[in-house]
Simulated assay, not measured.
Amino acid sequence: MSLRILHIIGDSNPAMGGAIEGVLRLGDAYRALGHSQHLLTLDDPSDPWVAACPSPIAAMGRPGPRKRFYPVRAIRWLRRHAREFDGVVVDGLWNGSTLAARRVLPGSGIAYCVFPHGMLDPWFRQSQPRKEWVKRRLFRVNEGPLLRGAEAVLFTTGRECELAAQSWPGWHGMAEKVIGFGTGEPPPETGEMHSAFRAAVPDMKTRPYLLFLSRIHPKKGCEILLEGFAAQRDLRDRQLVMAGPGDTDYVASLQALADRLGIGDRVVWPGMLAGDAKWGALYGADAMVLTSYQENFGVVVAEALACRTPVIISDQVNICTEVQQADAGIVCRPETTSVAEALGGFAAMSERERSDMTLRGRALFARAFSMRETAARLIDLFADSAEMEKQLSYS
């Protein structure tokens, strides 16, 4: 039976990072398994990424900076069309699309799941205390009822599930399910990919490099990465590529920090890399580094492993346990000294040790982080729900 799955998410802009990237890779996996994906978003229909999306989008937002705070059109669309789908996945929390889902789905008889994508992590409570007061009240009237009415609350790892249960009082009646996450199989490595990357960073020429590939945001530990890189003398022959979109003022502050640390001429800032340039960056890197203070999954980590690129990650990336147990990368604490030690440990590895690590990383990706497996679990969940509903209709 071919299923039609609707994903509700606030924004389909790829620059928003892991959640939408994961949703789009789920769509690829659905199609490979003979099913289809549709999106309901609060994008402006004229946003360029709407037309470029590989899955059909109902973009129900309005133009302007406040478009995501008015979900009226999304609520109407969902009431009209939700029953046309075999299952609904609500991706993320604390936004207008969540409000639309809460107004329509609980108690409707429509099979739906909620994928928080790390948004119940206690790190946000500690780092964003002003938002915490608002979120706790919203949880009572919006997020809580939405989660309790779901067929399942989906988590990428057991660690994420445990953190959510510890973080939110009144966490009862939740149908928790660890379903995994990941990404699709990367395209085969080509010379065009490397050329596209070098064209994006022409000043690098052929020098070896470490790669940061993510949103440039304070939670990503960018400062401690720069400080750790500057402190590690064994990396003086390498450059650091800080690739990703970010707030202009914040990026400028990081560039100033790199200059003060004496590494400004060894750090390059190409902005967001996509397509061949992104894959060329991953395939060509000595290692991919992500020293986040909080990271629910880290899609780019799975992508690096799939490309046989070693990873150096903090122990706040929720798949660090799997990486460490498989000896598929180096795990450090999100602090300068530990980051510097991890970078130094990598620099001291022999070529054979690095090669063996890349093979273990590729094997870990294949068994744990392939999005096809996550898609198959979701399809099974909704297929079981549809079969149960069919049996009840006959009774």
Rank of each mutant, 00 (worst) to 15 (best):
D276L: 14
W94D: 06
Q391D: 10
F115C: 12
E389D: 14
F115V: 07
R362S: 14
D44F: 14
D237S: 15
Y394G: 04
V114A: 06
D44Y: 15
T321I: 13
S127H: 13
I20H: 07
P63G: 03
I313K: 05
E185C: 08
F229P: 00
L290H: 08
A29W: 07
G22P: 12
R73I: 09
R79N: 09
I20F: 09
S395M: 11
C320R: 13
R136P: 06
V153L: 10
E223A: 14
N142H: 12
L33S: 13
N13W: 04
I179N: 10
A196E: 06
C222E: 05
S385Y: 11
L40G: 07
L235Q: 05
K219N: 09
L343E: 00
A196T: 05
Q316C: 11
T183P: 00
E192S: 14
F69T: 15
V299Q: 14
P65F: 10
V317M: 07
I20W: 07
R148S: 01
E223R: 14
K220P: 03
E84P: 04
R148Q: 07
F212S: 02
G244Y: 05
D259M: 13
E84K: 10
D315M: 02
D356P: 03
T336S: 06
R233L: 09
P56F: 06
G118S: 05
E192Y: 11
N296F: 03
E143P: 05
R198L: 13
D11M: 08
R140H: 13
L240G: 03
L146I: 06
D203K: 12
T98L: 00
N13I: 00
G264C: 00
G118D: 02
G61V: 02
L40V: 09
D249A: 14
E189Q: 12
K278G: 01
G96C: 04
G271I: 04
R130K: 15
M119E: 15
R80I: 01
K219D: 04
K177P: 02
F197H: 05
P208C: 10
A111I: 09
P310I: 00
T291Q: 10
V104M: 08
E373I: 09
V72G: 15
G262Q: 15
I5L: 11
T183I: 04
D91A: 14
Y293P: 02
W49V: 00
K220S: 03
T374H: 10
Q255G: 09
R354I: 01
R367F: 03
F382W: 04
H117T: 04
L93K: 03
H38K: 09
A258P: 11
F369N: 01
Q239F: 15
A243G: 02
I319H: 07
A164W: 01
D265K: 14
R333Q: 08
K219L: 08
